[in-house]
Computed example of a mutant assay.
Amino acid sequence: MTSAATLRQMTVGDLPAVLAIERSTFPFDAWSEGMLRGELADQPRTRHYIVAVADGGEVVGYAGLAAAGDQADVQTIAVSADRQRAGIGSAMLRALLDEATRRGAEAVFLEVRADNPPAQTMYERFGFERIGLRREYYDDGTDAIMMMRKLDEAENADG
């Protein structure tokens, strides 16, 4: 929970609000409703998706994790434009890292747009390190920076 929103598991009923945020945040490579439904269908087996809900009940952010074996991947994190810089993204990332730890992951990976310095800064604050680059990864030709954070007892305690 943050002062701005409460976190809970995402449901199919959240998809209209999530898709609106998805399309405004990622206009060139937004996930489709079918893709998101597929991710939700794998909860809780290999997926963990959450939403951030404001006091009035409005979904203002969402995030997802894929986890299998000793590895987890941050699939997505997005916050409504008018709610950014309020700690919601950080709260959701912390929740995903906690879930990865709970599931026994030893490392968490993600890709972040090379043209999104605020997101890169947030991930670095959480201990993610750059491990590579995927050229023209996104549909609009933007590169993706690959990042990784190892999970160990010390980091989990510090988080």
Rank of each mutant, 00 (worst) to 15 (best):
E111A: 09
P118S: 09
E111G: 07
E58S: 01
A114T: 12
Y62Q: 03
G127N: 08
M10D: 03
A105F: 03
H48R: 11
Q43L: 10
A52L: 04
D139S: 08
E33D: 06
D42T: 08
D98C: 14
S90Y: 00
D73C: 08
P118D: 04
G132A: 09
T25V: 15
A154W: 11
A144N: 11
N156W: 10
V112M: 06
D55P: 05
T76S: 04
W31Y: 08
I21W: 03
R23N: 12
R83T: 06
E136P: 02
F126S: 04
A154M: 12
Y62D: 13
V74S: 00
G13H: 14
P44K: 15
I88E: 00
G132V: 05
D82M: 09
R47D: 01
A95I: 15
A107I: 14
I50V: 14
T6H: 10
V108F: 02
E124Q: 14
V53M: 03
E111L: 08
R135F: 00
A17P: 06
L93K: 09
A66Q: 05
Y137W: 09
V18Q: 07
P27D: 06
V12I: 14
I77V: 13
D42F: 05
M1C: 15
D143R: 04
V108N: 03
L151W: 10
R45E: 15
A107H: 10
M147T: 04
G57Q: 01
A20M: 03
G87Q: 02
F26W: 09
Q71T: 12
N116S: 15
A157N: 10
D115K: 11
D42P: 05
L97E: 03
A54W: 01
Y123N: 00
N116G: 09
G38S: 02
T101C: 12
P117M: 13
W31K: 00
D42C: 04
M1Q: 14
E39I: 03
E155D: 13
M10T: 15
A30V: 05
Y49V: 13
A66P: 02
A95R: 14
A52V: 13
S3Q: 14
D152P: 12
A4K: 08
D158H: 15
A91C: 05
R85K: 15
A144G: 04
T121Y: 01
I21M: 02
T6D: 07
Y138H: 10
M146L: 15
L110Q: 04
I131P: 13
T142I: 09
V51C: 00
A107P: 01
E153Q: 15
R113F: 04
A68K: 00
T121D: 00
R45P: 02
S24G: 10
D70R: 12
A4F: 01
A157K: 14
D82H: 09
I131C: 10
Y49F: 10
Y138K: 09
G159V: 05
M122R: 03
P118C: 07
G13W: 15
A41Y: 02
R113A: 13
F28W: 11
T76V: 11
T6W: 05
D98W: 15
E129I: 14
I21Q: 05
A107G: 07
A30G: 15
G141I: 00
L97F: 07
W31L: 02
T101W: 10
E58P: 04
I21E: 15
A30Y: 01
N116Y: 05
L7P: 06
T6E: 12
M35D: 08
